[in-house]
Design a protein around this nucleic acid. Structure first.
Length: 645
DNA sequence: GAAGCGTTATACTAT
DNA sequence: ATAACGCTTC
């Protein structure tokens, strides 16, 4: 297959004057240019194994791999492609002793939060407000990703007094201690440890740098300071080829700063800026609306997307009384379009939050419209799958506190208190078989509890057998616990199947901690003709002929939680911009009169005012850019809230 | 009084 | 799906 590149893209792909940043607007062929770069390098004699390609999301990593293998065949598998986290962890696993991670277990966001909850518990007093585990985790993670002392962050981003800040700092210290005791590695540790070593240890730096000649980076605008440190440590001799768009920076909550792409040439000596400006994806009217949105910002993005494809159809906004009406209308519209010849896969529904799409999803199911949900909860986060995996984890280590807590509390009669007492004992053991003896001797009248452990332990050498044993053992108990057991049971046996792809249980658990499998993506084949229901964050880099942006009402864009913080409000603008620029031909925004919208959150009642200027992004759109329509519910079927349950 | 359990309100984005 | 809270049980 041949890659068609325009002049701008070709210049970028074939640039050979050193480090380079390519500023590429939405739809200007970013991915194609990166692909073009890789192909060009290989054609001019670069060993594919000496190319490293880093992305931010698993989704784009997968897309890169797929496209690369179409373009260059077998050579594609020699190129290192992955997310920053994936690359760092894999590099560290190649020399685990040097990084001190020989026995470490990677924990996901869910486990981090549980651990934080445990660390937080002793500091909670009745009647005294204290940030919840999720909030604490966010602050802590943000501070680490931006490489600043947590105390500095708290002083700047909160109005807590000193004793309160001290208390929070103690929680974080406890969290660190517990993490170390358990041998856990959280997502931030993966980047942090790697960044630290590559800077502090010249021997390690030499080894890792020595593996590559070229480092290609996608979505550069989403790099946070730690990721910058990593790139900094990887360059010279490897050359950087970074691609990004300031207007599409939507990961500030993870420490990214869109200004990074502007300061690139200052930070990296002898580097160059190239631009891609021609949009191939959308029609001009879609871009006019998107351009307008950016033009109202206080930030100058210096960007005006020009369509290569001509004027097209004007975007429209439709108002509904309720989210049920909205969902019903969308379902009807999808069916209509499908009947008139559009493939399901050409239709995409974009949502600001996973939660806000619940109603729409329910109607898609009800109307039997085939769809995939991308973003939000993964299979691995589902309670019953966690139950299964915690039993497997217990069998691998007696000091995995989180796994033991979960497994023990599954049993009737064992709550948090009893479980944590038992865990204290278990952690004193020297092995899992020791633990089995301990549990046998303890005066619990729960001898079945031990049977599960023993039965999985016998099979630890054979991952699918071990996972199957765990599933069979837990089934009777979980069946009573969960309502829609038939569906959930399938997930468990899916996990058994997946175990077949791994040689060891350690490998199995680590793979899915970093790359959680999403229910929908496993249940459906990738090329199936289905509608995509997707969070805007996950949708970056994708496109569809017809796009619906649902719940595009006040309170969503900008999201009400960002109100009052100018930078956050502007990030919300970029989120809507990303959503709009996904559409090729048809852009449809839908709104509801939901509680969160209207004056409640923007007006006097809540007391919250936007200080950033524009309170709601679609308030001030000129008529010639956006058609508008109101749909009353007589025209739709009535949807009761019972449908949702 | 401690421990477990059921009820109710509430929910942003992702490696 | 989970946190916080009040209620029941031992």
């Amino acid at each position: 297959m041949i890659l068609q590149l325009n002049r701008e893209q070709k210049t970028a792909a074939e640039y050979d004057g050193g480090h380079v940043i390519v500023l590429a607007g939405a739809g200007t062929g970013k991915t194609s240019t990166i692909m073009g770069r890789a192909v060009h390098l290989i054609e001019t004699g670069v060993d594919p194994a000496r190319i490293l390609l880093m992305t931010f999301t698993r989704r784009s990593a997968k897309e890169m791999i797929d496209r690369l293998s179409v373009l260059i065949g077998e050579n594609a598998s020699l190129v290192t492609v992955g997310t920053f986290h994936h690359f760092c962890l894999a590099s560290m696993r190649r020399m685990p002793e040097k990084f001190g991670i020989a026995n470490a277990t990677v924990i996901d966001r869910d486990d981090q939060e549980r651990l934080m909850k445990i660390a937080r518990a002793p500091y909670v007093e009745k009647g005294v407000k204290f940030p919840n585990a999720n909030t604490l985790m966010n602050s802590y993670s943000y501070a680490r990703n931006t490489n600043q002392p947590i105390i500095k962050y708290l002083e700047k981003h909160s109005d807590y007094d000193k004793p309160f800040v001290d208390k929070i700092l103690r929680v974080f210290t406890d969290y660190e201690t517990r993490k170390k005791q358990n041998g856990y590695l959280d997502f931030d540790d993966i980047l942090f440890l790697f960044a630290q070593k590559i800077h502090a240890d010249s021997e390690i730096r030499k080894i890792i740098k020595g593996r590559y000649d070229h480092v290609l980076v996608d979505e550069m605008q989403d790099t946070n300071p730690i990721q910058w440190m990593i790139l900094d440590g990887l360059r010279d001799p490897p050359l950087l080829f970074c691609v990004g768009d300031d207007a599409q920076s939507i990961y500030a909550f993870r420490g990214a700063d869109f200004r990074n792409v502007h300061t690139f040439t200052k930070r990296i000596p002898k580097s160059k800026v190239l631009r891609l400006q021609e949009n191939y994806r959308s029609t001009q009217q879609v871009l006019d609306l998107s351009n307008h949105l950016l033009s109202e910002s206080s930030i100058r993005y210096g960007k005006k997307l020009k369509a290569h494809r001509g004027p097209g159809i004007r975007p429209k906004v439709i108002d509904f009384e309720s989210e049920f009406d909205e969902a019903a209308w969308i379902a009807n519209d999808l069916i209509e379009r499908h009947e008139t010849g559009q493939a399901w896969r050409d239709l995409m529904i974009l949502t600001r939050t996973a939660y806000a799409s619940r109603t729409t999803e329910a109607v898609l199911i009800e109307k039997k419209i085939p769809y995939v949900f991308v973003g939000g909860t993964s299979l691995l986060k589902a309670a019953h799958v966690k139950d299964l995996l915690c039993l497997v984890r217990c069998c691998l280590s007696h000091y995995d506190e989180l796994a033991w807590m979960r497994y023990l509390t599954l049993w009737p009669g064992i709550g948090d208190v009893t479980a944590s007492r038992l865990v204290d004992g278990i952690r004193q053991c020297s092995s899992v078989s020791d633990t089995v003896d301990l549990l046998r001797l303890s005066n619990l009248d729960r001898s079945e509890l031990v049977q599960g452990i023993v039965s999985v332990m016998k099979r630890t050498e054979d991952p699918p057998k071990a996972v199957q044993a765990a599933a069979e053992f837990l089934e009777p108990m979980l069946e009573k616990r969960y309502q829609n057991w038939k569906q959930r049971k399938r997930d468990l046996y899916l996990m058994v199947q997946l175990a077949g792809r791994h040689k060891t249980l350690y490998d199995y658990l680590e793979t899915y901690a970093l790359d959680p499998v999403h229910t929908s993506s496993v249940r459906r084949k990738t090329d199936e003709d289905v509608v995509t229901l997707i969070t805007v964050h996950s949708a970056k880099g994708t496109e569809a002929t017809t796009c619906y942006i649902i719940r595009a009402e006040p309170g969503m864009y900008p999201h009400f939680r960002s109100l009052g913080d100018h930078d956050e409000e502007e990030e919300e603008r970029r989120i809507l911009y990303v959503a709009m620029t996904r559409a090729k031909d048809d852009l449809i925004l839908t709104r509801t009169m939901n509680q969160r919208g209207g004056s409640v959150w923007y007006g006097d009642m809540s007391g919250e005012h936007s200080r950033g200027g524009t309170p709601y992004f679609l308030e001030t759109v000129p008529e010639n850019l956006l058609d508008s329509e109101i749909v009353f519910d007589e025209t739709l079927e009535n949807w009761s809230s019972e449908v949702i349950r």
